[in-house]
Design a protein around this nucleic acid. Sequence first.
DNA 1: AAATTTTACGAAAACGTTTTCTCTATTTTT
DNA 2: AAAAATAGAGAAAACGTTTTCGTAAAATTT
Lengths: 336, 336
Amino acid sequence: MSSINLKRLSEELGLSISSVSKALRDSYEISAETKKRVRAMAEKLNYQPNPFASSLRRKKSITIAVVIPEIANNFFALAIDGIQMIAQQKGYHVLTYLTHENFMNEESTIKHLQGGRVDGVLISLCRDTESIKHLTALQDTGIPLVFFDRVPEMMNCPTVTTDDYESGFKATEHLIKAGCKKIACLSLSSLLSITHKRMDGYKDALKKYKLKEDPKFIVECTNDNTANLELIKKLLSKKDRPDGIFSTVEKLSISTYYVCNEIKLKIPQQIKIISFSNLRTASLLNPSLSTITQPAFEIGKESASLLFRMIEKKTFGNRIDKIVLKSSLIERNSSK
Amino acid sequence: MSSINLKRLSEELGLSISSVSKALRDSYEISAETKKRVRAMAEKLNYQPNPFASSLRRKKSITIAVVIPEIANNFFALAIDGIQMIAQQKGYHVLTYLTHENFMNEESTIKHLQGGRVDGVLISLCRDTESIKHLTALQDTGIPLVFFDRVPEMMNCPTVTTDDYESGFKATEHLIKAGCKKIACLSLSSLLSITHKRMDGYKDALKKYKLKEDPKFIVECTNDNTANLELIKKLLSKKDRPDGIFSTVEKLSISTYYVCNEIKLKIPQQIKIISFSNLRTASLLNPSLSTITQPAFEIGKESASLLFRMIEKKTFGNRIDKIVLKSSLIERNSSK
DNA sequence: AAATTTTACGAAAACGTTTTCTCTATTTTT
DNA sequence: AAAAATAGAGAAAACGTTTTCGTAAAATTT
């Protein structure tokens, strides 16, 4: 730890600690000349203020927390990129916490954050978050909280999401127009609002085109990749297998590709696929993957911007923002 | 900020602040009975200690910093995953900083970290880091510092890397054995040690098989993606174009795929490709991409573990660890 | 029973800032 | 020229912990 502090600096300059502090904070109480002297000495001795003393006194951490299920995930990596961009502009630090889709991790992280370590929290819920007590508790302490993408269904809170219902509808409609009659839906967890909405779109599209909704075709996957492969394999190996797959998350479509390779199911001839995805290589896959692509980077930016508006109290009183961005459907060969 | 603190707790309990503090820290000076009472009350009032007061007093932040060029990058995302895993085990917080391959960002971030905000720093250098003054300055303050993957060449410091030279050699040898006579090498920046080493392996492999080294075939790319596409397009459009590509970073191989698609160059018939990469979809590409895959997650874990050994002073005196992990070459269709 | 040790707790200093209040010397206003 | 205002700086409290030191009372040893 850098042992050069205000006291040392003030001794070196023959000034009081408070004057040095004020000079560095550019207070009007200090003459221009003194400020210059102080700044020069601070530069010379490479003074770095102690962030803990400062945070303790000012009750400000200049830090935000980002709580996400996983990082090795294109969507979340891009979102963090956007968050970091805004945070950097504001001179804020970013603490990252991974829940690994584990509710207890999420709970303890959130609980810890009540200690005041951060000035605001950005969070995307984990797949098996069923209670929201920890979240309301955090909110009650007054720490600004913004949810993005995976938001709670039963809570009145600021959120940044995409048009999940419409996207689910359009994706399914796209498969139907491509000739699919039996469309399966791969989802992560029925507890998540994004899954609900995307699936509602899927169901309504089926309804609109008079296709019957088969519960066997709605596959809820787990957090275990090999188990998911088995589930998908089972789904696709049945004689009454689907001829279209709507995947609500990227990794399930990748698993589907693997399974199709393994059991020699031809995409798109025998089965068509469309998936939510932020893969940069979607167009290079064999065959190229049709995607609904969320503006992940913008989601990150918007969430962080909203959070900072709340931190800076620029958002009026009890107004609660719900920002919805648009995803884009990109047709490629997997659904031709 | 949670306004329930030790003072409030002590009043509630009819004890002194110091006793409450000691009780919560499980000091031998406090009776078992009192400890129980204190803990119960702390639980009841949902007491969360103020991290800044604690850090200020103990001169410990229980936080580490991770400084990386970018996050929307499979390698770094996986590395962070590994780092987070170890940090979580140790009960540490993780601050993430992105340099976006910009030296000035790296410099100011490192300088800021001298203020003692963290107990240790993990860093992977940005592509145009040419001076290491900021790094030695940080090291001189006594803050443990571990480099991973992109490490400085001229500095004696703890590092975690992979067998870059051998990987470069093997990748090139693999292309040669597949029949390539004119192999190009795509690199990010000649300032980086990983590029150097990978390229040295490439050059030595050429030498071993008596292929002449053509400077036109060593392409140093920039940080601008569209510019890179142009560079690669130019390289591949020449009549004297290469018949093999060794890409030292993932994104350049993806760009190469795009260019090949555009100018109708058939992989692997007309040009073979192998690339450093952590793409999960490598085997699903058209054609599947031969890769040298670094153990990114393990690199993260090893780096963090090493850092914590340094933080906990478990590493002896002036010993400097240099950990080298092995990458694996996975042959796929792009180099058949 | 006196002397010593142990147990259990409290008072207060310390960590390095920020900020409020106070004070003197100078400048401005009457 | 006296009164008032202002400029520039310092003293000290405060932020919430942790930790050192001190000290009664109880327990143990002589």
